[in-house]
């Protein structure tokens, strides 16, 4: 297991290096001058060539590309991701301010999705008939409706029509806990909509598959009650693929936060990433992409470990 983990970590580090290099090259290849963005912004400022040149020099953009790359790489291995072109703040500070907000959103969405998806899938598998069909239709809709539509509908219904929740925004949990919770529920629920449907369908299919196994029949023939067989054997075995899919969906959820954070005005890292791409704030974009990649790789390693825990055969292999 240790060897396996070490191998995965080493592969992860190589992957992060590749991502770092690719994002560096891609950012420098796309048109758009960070110095001009800094000086002109959204306004129509008259920027003189001298002012532009001075800004480029200050941002280190006049150095040859290999030198810029080397400097960035040297900083990254020391966990120095540079400073924002726009406001001069260290990238790590910006990321550490925003990342917890996004992770909170994603983790809450996963919890909601598990809490809704597993029972729904179980009911569909065990009840069959109309209930199964109704849940199948519902989850098909859940998987096919884009998150921005769900988000917009949630705002219209729960914020504007019913007035149960604020339409968006953020409050520090330390300052106003209830206010904080009230603002995170809608975006997390919107984010969980699709993945809850996927989990429900995966649970249903895995349960049905397990019910057809010989060992279920054997267990029943030994006189073990149906509920016990379901809880102790069928459900547990069915959760292995569910756990894998859920963990892999976290990457998709991180991507979906780009839209959800915008709709609900949630100050997460995805909103910062979009703004930084627009402003051509290279250090911030690079820093966020590297950290998100690291998170994604970490999750994949975690999935492997979890898989081993849930399925002893995988552990042995």
């Amino acid at each position: 297991m240790i060897n396996f983990l070490l191998k995965r970590v080493a592969t992860g580090i190589v992957l992060i290096y590749v991502v770092l290099t690719l994002i560096f090259l891609m950012l420098h290849a796309v048109p758009g001058d960070p110095a001009m963005q800094l000086l002109a912004g959204d306004g129509a400022a008259q920027v003189t060539p001298a002012a532009l040149e001075a800004a480029r020099e200050r941002l280190g953009l006049n150095a040859p590309l290999p030198v810029q790359y080397w400097n960035y790489l040297a900083g990254a291995v020391q966990l120095d991701l540079g400073t924002s072109f726009q406001d001069g703040a260290p990238v790590l500070d910006l990321v550490s301010e925003r990342l917890p907000n996004t992770l909170e959103l994603v983790l809450l969405a996963v919890l909601i999705a598990l809490a809704v998806g597993i029972p729904l899938g179980s009911v569909a598998a065990r009840r069959g008939g109309f209930v199964d069909s109704a849940i199948s239709v519902g989850t098909s809709i859940g998987m096919s409706v884009p998150v921005y539509v769900v988000g917009a509908l949630f705002v219209l219904l729960f914020a504007l029509k019913l007035g149960w929740f604020p339409a968006g925004g953020y409050e520090e949990a330390g300052g106003n806990f209830v206010g904080h919770v009230s603002r995170v529920v809608l975006p997390a629920a919107a984010l969980s909509f699709g993945i809850a449907s996927i989990i429900a369908r995966m649970t249903r299919s895995a349960i049905l598959d397990n019910y057809r196994q010989d060992w279920v029949r054997t267990a029943r023939s030994w006189g073990i009650g149906r509920r016990l067989v379901f809880r102790k054997h069928v459900l547990r075995n069915s959760l292995t693929p569910v756990a894998t899919v859920t963990a892999l969906q976290i990457g998709t959820l991180l991507g979906s936060t780009v839209l959800v954070e915008r709709i609900f005005n949630w100050p997460g890292i995805s909103a910062l990433l979009v703004d930084s791409v627009i402003e051509r704030d290279y250090p911030v974009v690079q820093g966020i992409v590297i950290i998100l990649s690291a998170i994604f790789i970490f999750i994949n390693i975690l999935v492997d470990v979890l898989y081993g825990y849930l399925d002893p055969r995988a552990r042995v292999s």
């Binding site: 809490a115 009911v123 209830v178 009230s182 509920r227």
Partner: peptide, 26 residues
Amino acid sequence: YKAPGRTTGAVAAGVAIGLLLSACGG
């Protein structure tokens, strides 16, 4: 089998409480 009412009931109750709690802060 009979539906495992306890599980879904607990989830529904949890969501309802969450909504209620959150609505207070809205």
